[in-house]
Amino acid sequence: MKSWFISCILVTEWLLPTSGEDCPSPPPVNNSILVGTCMEGNFLGTYICITGYHLVGKKELLYNNTSLEWDSPAPICRLGHCPIPVLVNGQMNSSNLEHFSDGDVVTFECDTDYILKGSNWSQCQEDHTWIPPLPICRTGQCTPPRKPENGHFKTKGFNSGTNVTFYCDDGYQLIGPQSLQCMDGEWSHESPICEKMEAKKEESCVFQENNICETVQKWIQYQKASGQTLEELKYSLEIKKLQLEKIKFS
């Protein structure tokens, strides 16, 4: 196994060791440093850009002696510490739009009808990254919410600030918020669901003598018609029961 250290600055000059191992010459990358290893005709190289340049592409290249080809295209070293920021549906503001050095700051703004998500500025770091992370521009319109099974919703649109109201079919009840609001491209809550309502149990009578059962049923019907509370109904039934017992033993 052979290892070597190669530098390529502006002018490509490769100083490859002579050995019995038939290793290919790695593709030249200006303004880079290459660390390579050759073993049995297979070559693995790692490209490192010099100060003031950043790598674009895959930093490692592998030559396979079986397939006789490189696993990916050679990278390039581009001037500037950081890659040029890309803001879809927006634009960046900077005095220099071609290359960015350590400490350079850019600001961002979105096109009309788009909302900035993230920081409106970022600074180029020495390690070739942008801090804070680059933002994105999102449309202020919300995607249509999920329609609940056994239900539906009504709305005048999906723009920011509009509301959506949900309704369930007969025999189903709404579980969750009935209304959602679109806020900067996102809904205020999760969509509700429609759950099947349990069937109401029929009232049954436990009394079987002296027409008490019939009386209770009549009082239940009266309670529904009059709007009495259960406590009021209970009190009335107790009085009626005492009256019936008094008649029974008189």
Score class of each variant (00 low, 15 high):
Met197Leu: 13
Gly20Glu: 15
Asn210Arg: 06
Asp127Tyr: 01
Asn64Thr: 01
Val11Leu: 15
Phe158Glu: 01
Tyr63Gln: 08
Pro27Arg: 03
Val106Arg: 00
Val86Ser: 13
Trp187Ser: 01
Ser191Leu: 10
Val105Lys: 14
Ser94Asn: 08
Gln178Asn: 11
Glu245Asp: 14
Ala199Cys: 07
Gly57Thr: 15
Asp104Tyr: 12
Pro177Met: 14
Leu116Ile: 13
Pro177Ser: 15
Arg146Tyr: 14
Ser19Tyr: 08
His128Gly: 06
Glu245Ser: 09
Gly118Thr: 05
Asn30Lys: 07
Gly36Arg: 02
Glu231Asn: 15
Ala199Arg: 10
Leu62Ile: 12
Cys38Ser: 07
Pro148Met: 03
Ile175Gln: 08
Ser25Thr: 14
Cys124Lys: 02
Ile220Lys: 04
Gly103Lys: 13
Glu13Asn: 06
Cys205Pro: 00
Leu55Glu: 05
Pro73Glu: 14
Ile84Asp: 05
Leu244Arg: 15
Leu87Glu: 05
Gln123Leu: 10
Asp184Ser: 15
Met92Pro: 01
Glu203Lys: 12
Gln125Ile: 01
Lys201Leu: 13
Pro135Ala: 08
Tyr114Thr: 00
Thr162Ala: 11
Gln181Leu: 07
Gly171Val: 09
Tyr47Trp: 01
Cys8Gly: 02
Pro85Asp: 03
Leu15Met: 14
Ser236Arg: 13
Lys59Glu: 13
Gln125Val: 02
Thr143Ala: 11
Leu34Ile: 07
Gln217Asn: 07
Asn42Ala: 08
Leu134Asn: 11
Phe43Ile: 09
Glu21Ala: 04
Pro148Gly: 06
Pro132Asp: 11
His81Glu: 12
Leu10Met: 04
Val164Arg: 05
Lys154Cys: 01
Pro192His: 08
Gly140Thr: 03
Ala225Met: 12
Phe100Ala: 01
Leu244Pro: 08
Trp130Cys: 02
Leu174Phe: 13
Asp170Trp: 01
Lys241Asn: 08
Leu233Asn: 04
Glu195Asp: 12
His128Glu: 09
Ser179Asn: 15
Gln178His: 09
Leu134Cys: 05
Ser179Ala: 14
